[in-house]
């Protein structure tokens, strides 16, 4: 118990890094992913192709590789990013790709009649998107986005390869140094806590959308 208390401040330090990555990624990739999802079905073909290519690259390669690529790859061409910035960049680009796919399929799941009804009422394409389509898309994408956010909690551990002291790395260092398994258990508790909060939050959001079908 004493050991747990002694280690806790370090773990909390690591947790802070994990949380910053988590929240910054979310804040940045939600709008970005939404825009990309719309661009993915744009009438402007080159944009559509570009987005298809983008999604293919970022969903088709391991996030771990993308992390290394952004940090070391950019370094070889002379761009030196802070390790955390590089990690954040890779995460945002990666998660935006997944979100874009979710938003795209959400948009495409909306009945054509909704566009036609808006059209005959004189709404512009932009007004239709913001007033009619996207609000309905958001309801439908809450569950799949919830899954991605849970993944994000767990994927945040990957940034240990850039030697960033996030939760898992702190735990691993302590395990090696003190020859005890306890830090891993503590890390597990932290992750379980985060995923539980995320799950509850998304349940609440889903419930908020219950007022219509």
């Amino acid at each position: 118990m004493d050991y747990v208390l002694k280690l806790l401040p370090h773990m909390l330090e690591g947790w802070k890094t994990t949380l910053s990555l988590f929240f910054l990624t979310l804040i940045l990739c939600l709008p970005l992913g939404t825009i990309m999802g719309i661009a993915r079905i744009s009438k402007f073909k080159p944009l559509q192709w570009f987005m298809e290519f983008y999604v293919w690259i970022f969903r088709g390669t391991p996030l771990l590789l993308q992390l290394l690529f952004v940090y070391f790859g950019l370094m070889t061409v002379g761009i030196r990013l802070e390790r955390f910035t590089a990690a954040l960049l890779a995460f945002v680009l990666n998660y935006a790709a997944y979100l874009a796919e979710i938003i795209r399929s959400g948009i495409q799941s909306i009945d054509r009649g909704q566009y036609e009804a808006a059209d005959v009422l004189g709404l512009t394409r932009f007004q239709t998107m913001t007033n009619i389509i996207l609000p309905q898309v958001f309801k439908r994408v809450v569950p799949p986005i919830g899954n991605e956010v849970i993944n994000l909690v767990k994927d945040s551990a990957l940034i240990y390869v850039l030697a960033i002291s996030e939760l898992l790395r702190v735990a691993k260092t302590a395990v090696m140094r003190d020859e005890t398994f306890v830090p891993f258990i503590m890390a597990a508790v932290f992750y379980l806590f985060m995923t539980a909060v995320v799950q509850q939050f998304f349940k609440w959001v889903e419930h908020k959308f219950d007022y219509y079908r």
Binding site: G113, A117, Q136
Partner: peptide, 24 residues
């Protein structure tokens, strides 16, 4: 339309006022 195409996320009143307010 045959299938009504009401906006499901809007109340009946909101369905009616949406276009008058934002278009007209």
């Amino acid at each position: 339309f045959q299938n009504f195409n009401l906006f499901p996320h809007k109340s009946v009143l909101e369905n009616l006022i949406l276009a008058p307010v934002i278009v007209n």
